[in-house]
Design a protein around this nucleic acid. Sequence first.
DNA 1: TATAAAGTCTATAGTGACTATAGAGTCAAG
DNA 2: CTTGACTCTATAGTCACTATAGACTTTATA
Lengths: 129, 129
Amino acid sequence: MKIGELSKTTGCSIQTIRYYEKEGLLSTPERTEGNYRLYGERALKELEFIKHCRSLDIPLTDVKRLMELKNKPEESCASVNKLIAQQLALVNNRMRELKALKAELQQMASLCTTENTIEACGIIKSLDS
Amino acid sequence: MKIGELSKTTGCSIQTIRYYEKEGLLSTPERTEGNYRLYGERALKELEFIKHCRSLDIPLTDVKRLMELKNKPEESCASVNKLIAQQLALVNNRMRELKALKAELQQMASLCTTENTIEACGIIKSLDS
DNA sequence: TATAAAGTCTATAGTGACTATAGAGTCAAG
DNA sequence: CTTGACTCTATAGTCACTATAGACTTTATA
């Protein structure tokens, strides 16, 4: 299939697919006589793997490492484990931050009624303190 | 005070301060004979305001708008209100995503014991599906 | 007083993960 | 045989910074 079809099937934009190729995440596709990229099952699977990792916010460098590890099936998966644990720690951190953030935003929202002038606005006041 | 002191007082890096100035968020500072930036109370307050907004993940364009609104104290604060509500919606969305993400990462972590080879690794398997 | 060290200046490039655009080439349908 | 859809490469833009190079200014020390 050509890049447009791959894009539709996977939901990745065409530019993103080419970007992943440039970054060495997708294996170099064959080309038609007219120099169009040609993809098969393999590229589809690679792309789905990347998509899945990205939906977990795993950075592309780590995705690349994971894909390389996949090709060394006899090695220990300790590094895979570590990577996921790190990712989990990041997510936990970010969630804690977001909770605090949400609380403050809600508090701010409650300080403002649309009828106020900016001078009297509780939100601006709270941002100033 | 000079930029280094402002940086230490506020915890913003020197480059960030200069960046905010370039983006029109900080008012243009005076200069010494030797062309060093000179800041006073005003810059300190502006910078604290920006920092506070940024800690709430409010994008710089919106911070700029808020600062402009602050200088029009007689206008209605409806737009301030709207901006905060939008930000809150974003945060809520992101929290929902992160929850799902965390659940999946935890599930994955539970699939792997360090003794496995990659071939048998539950994490890689789950990333593949 | 000389010089070394610390601070500051501007301008530019890099980050990550894309997105957008320009300008040219390819291919299928009417 | 031409129109339109698709694809190609190369380049620039996004956001909010961070990092660097190379020059200048100020302060501290010998």
